[in-house]
Design a protein around this nucleic acid. Structure first.
Length: 362
DNA sequence: TAGGCCATCTGGTCCT
DNA sequence: AGGACCAGATGGCCTA
């Protein structure tokens, strides 16, 4: 591996020159992460890095041709099979570098495209905030749940403000994300959210329903996760006793879909989170394409019929969440009257369906 | 300070 | 040969 020391002056100069081409490469990039780039030039300690592509590679290749018959302990090793490696001439090294530089640039832009797509996904999630971005994994999980939940709405005519809706949304999400979603979905029809959806979750001073979720003082069974991006806790006043209990409604659909689902550090879903109180009206959010999307000329959404068909045919997440959600939320589990719990901002199901048509027909 | 999240580089694999 | 995709490695930033 990279156990070789830079002892020879030739190697050092080669290293310097190889840093030079990196310099060129990086300066040609968008520059957002220039500090990050520098570390690759300077570290040289990692298992990767431009250093490896310099003359060292060249020398290693040449040495290999002489030495690779011998193992580490000097014993005769079997001859390497396959075509003999071509000599790394200067020209080949240069071509290799150039290709690597291009590949890096492509990979960067590919990942940027992926991030753009993720960002546009965030914007159609029930809880979108510029200041408090969902992580990638949470975005995907919430998207899955959202599709599932909307499918339920279309399929069964269930109320999107029904008790199960938020449970479906929060299924498998981390506690902070669940709290965030819960807080967002309780936004009332205030100018703060009508005016701008870019920071719904951060709408200060009300708009939130009177029923908090996982209140700081005592609310959530798993503790409170005040979200940094939230100016004030929108989830404040609901007693823990008003929250659903995991045991009460834990069924097949509430089990974590797969043991791998939360492998990236997110705690496994271990209970229903908060009582769904209202929907913030994100359904009515008309999305504007991001600059990147506009550039890319994304194909149009499928027609409403297609969407409805898809949702109805696949209204469960593609994992083991197989039970109809509405079957899992029998009756009221809340001690508060519905008229208190659901604010008027929640769109009725037919509006939801209509809005889905609007979204898909854009 | 540990842990989570992220951007980036890199080499491997598959495909055209 | 070259591009797309992927996963591993690395280190920075942020937060509890």
């Amino acid at each position: 591996m990279m156990t070789k020391q830079f002892g020879k002056s030739g190697e050092v100069s080669e290293l310097v020159s190889s840093l030079g081409w990196m310099e060129e490469d990086m300066s040609s990039q968008d520059g957002d992460h220039t500090p990050d780039m520098n570390r690759y030039r300077l570290s040289g300690g990692g298992s990767h890095g431009p250093v490896e592509l310099g003359s060292e590679d060249l020398e290693e290749e040449e040495e290999e041709e002489d030495d690779d018959e011998f193992g580490l302990d000097g014993e005769k090793a079997p001859k390497r099979r396959g075509p003999k490696k071509k000599k790394m001439t200067k020209a080949r090294v240069e071509r290799f570098r150039a290709r690597r530089v291009k590949a890096n640039a492509r990979e960067r832009s590919r990942m940027h495209g992926l991030n753009d797509a993720l960002e546009s996904l965030r914007r159609v999630m029930p809880c979108y905030s510029k200041t408090q971005k969902l992580s990638k994994i949470e975005t995907l999980r919430l998207a899955r749940n959202y599709i599932w939940a909307l499918g339920e709405v279309l399929e069964t005519g269930a109320q999107p403000e029904s008790p199960g809706f938020m449970d479906m949304l929060c299924k498998g999400l981390s506690q902070p994300t669940s709290n965030l979603v819960a807080g967002c979905l309780q936004l009332g029809p205030t100018p703060a959210i009508h005016g701008k959806m870019d920071d719904k979750c951060g709408a200060p001073g009300g708009g939130f329903g009177m029923l908090g979720v996982s209140g700081q003082a005592g609310g959530h069974p798993h503790g409170s996760y005040p979200s940094p991006g939230l100016p004030s806790p929108p989830y404040g006043s609901l007693e823990a006793s008003h929250l659903m209990h995991l045991k009460g409604c834990k069924g097949p659909a509430y089990e974590n879909p797969s043991p791998h689902e939360c492998s990236s550090g997110t705690p496994p879903y271990d209970g229903p989170l908060t009582p769904p109180l209202s929907i913030s009206g994100n359904f009515a959010l008309k999305q504007e394409p991001s600059p990147h999307e506009a550039e890319r000329n994304y194909p149009p959404h499928p027609p409403p019929g297609h969407a409805a068909h898809y949702l109805s045919a696949h209204h469960y997440p593609p994992t083991s969440m197989a039970a109809p959600a509405h079957a899992l939320f029998p009756g009221s589990r809340y001690e508060l009257p519905l008229e208190m719990a659901f604010d008027s901002f929640a769109p009725p199901p037919h509006m939801v369906a209509a809005q889905m048509g609007t979204i898909y027909s854009e």
